[in-house]
C-alpha cells in the first residue's frame, strides 16, 4: 500500500471509530468543534486497541526486554539467594568460545535446512500435489491423516516414535523389517540413526502445515489454466513446473520463511526423543541448548542468564534470516499491486 492509501485508510478508520463511539453512547450526529471531535475519536480508537496492546506489552515486549537484561547478568540457581550483578558481555563471550558452539551451529543448520527442504517444503508439496490430483474426498481423507501427528500431544507422538525405534525385541522396526536398513537390533534413535529419527519426527508434523497451505493455493488455480496447458501440449510434469509452481510461489516462499524461523526455535521433539544425544551434542540444536542451559543442567545449576544469552543470539540470527528472506525473495514485489491499463 502506498502512503497515500494508508493515510486514507487511517482517516476512514478514524471516522468509523468516531461514529462507533457515537452510536455506543447514543449521541446524536451533529457537528462539533474539530478539537473535541479529534480527541473523542482518538480516545475511542485507542480504547479499541487497548486490549491487544496490553496483551502484546505484557507477554511480548516486557519479557523480551527482561530477557535482554537477563543476558547481561550472572543470574542462576546457584547464586539465586545472593544479589546478582551485571557482568557485561561475559555470557556472550562464553557462548561464542564454547567448545561445542561450532558443533551446535552445524547441527542447527543441518537440522533446520534438511527438515525444511525435504519435509516442510518437499513432502508438503508432494502431498498437496498428490491429494489435489485424486478424487476430492480421498484427497481430503489423506490430508486429514497427515494432520493427525500435529493433533497428537508431543509426548504421545514421540512415545510412538520411540516404540518404532526401540531395541529388540520391543521396537516395531526391529521386529518387522530389520533387513531394510540392516539394523543391528539396537535402539535406533539413540543408536543407529538418531538424525534420521530427529528429522522424521519433526518433518512428519512440519509437512502438514505446508500441505494445507499449498493445497488451498493449488485448488485456487483456475481449472481453465490447467486445461489450457494440457491443450498447449504440456505433460503433467510440465504443468507442475511451468504453471502450478510459479502460481503458488507466494505460499512457497511464505512457508520457507515461516518454517525456517519455526524450526530454528523448535526443540521439544528432540528433547523428548534424544535429549540432544546420543553421546555429546550429537543431535543438540541451538534452541535445545538455550533450554538446557536455562532450566536443566547436569549439575543442578540452572544458568538462567546464560540460557537467555543463547536465546537472544538465536533471536538475532532469526531476525537476520527473516530480513534476508524478505530481500532475496523480493516479498515487497510479490505484494505489489498490478497496474491495469484499459484500452
Amino acid at each position: 500500500m502506498t502512503e497515500k492509501q494508508l493515510s486514507a485508510t487511517e482517516q476512514l478508520m478514524e471516522q468509523e471509530a468516531d461514529s462507533l463511539a457515537r452510536a455506543a453512547i447514543g449521541a446524536p450526529k451533529q457537528p462539533r468543534s474539530s478539537l473535541g471531535r479529534r480527541v473523542r475519536s482518538t480516545v475511542s480508537a485507542y480504547g479499541f486497541l487497548l486490549p491487544a496492546i496490553a496483551l502484546v506489552i505484557t507477554f511480548f515486549i516486557i519479557p523480551g526486554i527482561l530477557l535482554i537484561i537477563l543476558s547481561f547478568t550472572n543470574l542462576s540457581s546457584a547464586n539465586f539467594t545472593e544479589p546478582w550483578e551485571f557482568i557485561g558481555f561475559a555470557n556472550f563471550e562464553r557462548l561464542f568460545t564454547d567448545p561445542f558452539f561450532p558443533k551446535i551451529l552445524r547441527n542447527t543448520v543441518f537440522y533446520v535446512f534438511t527438515t525444511l527442504i525435504f519435509f516442510n517444503l518437499g513432502l508438503a508439496l508432494v502431498l498437496a500435489l498428490v491429494t489435489t490430483n485424486i478424487p476430492r474426498r480421498r484427497g481430503f481423507f489423506f490430508r486429514l491423516v497427515w494432520l493427525l501427528p500435529r493433533l497428537t500431544p508431543s509426548v504421545v507422538y514421540i512415545l510412538m516414535w520411540k516404540r518404532i525405534g526401540s531395541a529388540d525385541p520391543f521396537g516395531i522396526y526391529n521386529q518387522f523389517m530389520p533387513e531394510v536398513l540392516g539394523a543391528s537390533g539396537g535402539n535406533l534413535f539413540l543408536g543407529g540413526a538418531p538424525w534420521a529419527f530427529v528429522i522424521l519426527t519433526n518433518g512428519f508434523v512440519g509437512a502438514s502445515f505446508g500441505m494445507i497451505i499449498f493445497t488451498s493455493a493449488l485448488m485456487s488455480i483456475p481449472e481453465d489454466l490447467i486445461t489450457a496447458a494440457k491443450v498447449d501440449g504440456a505433460s503433467t510434469w510440465r504443468i507442475i513446473r511451468d504453471i502450478k509452481l510459479p502460481l503458488i510461489k507466494w505460499p512457497l516462499l511464505f512457508i520457507a520463511t515461516y518454517q525456517t524461523l519455526s524450526l530454528l526455535t523448535s526443540f521439544e521433539y528432540i528433547l523428548l526423543l534424544t535429549e540432544g544425544g546420543p553421546g555429546l551434542f550429537t543431535t543438540e540444536v541451538w534452541a535445545l541448548t538455550a533450554y538446557k542451559r536455562a532450566f536443566s543442567s547436569y549439575f543442578g545449576n540452572s544458568q538462567w542468564a546464560f540460557g537467555a544469552t543463547w536465546a537472544i543470539v538465536l533471536v538475532a540470527v532469526a531476525l537476520v534470516m527473516a530480513v534476508l528472506y524478505v530481500k532475496i525473495f523480493k516479498f515487497n514485489e510479490l505484494v505489489e499491486e498490478p497496474r491495469i491499463e484499459n484500452l
Binding site: P222, D224, L225, A228, V231, D242, P246
Partner: peptide, 14 residues
C-alpha cells in the same frame, strides 16, 4: 492438434 480459447482467457498470469 487443437487450439482452445476460453471465456476466462486462461492466460498464464506469471
Amino acid at each position: 492438434g487443437i487450439g482452445m480459447v476460453f471465456q476466462s482467457y486462461a492466460l498464464y498470469p506469471h
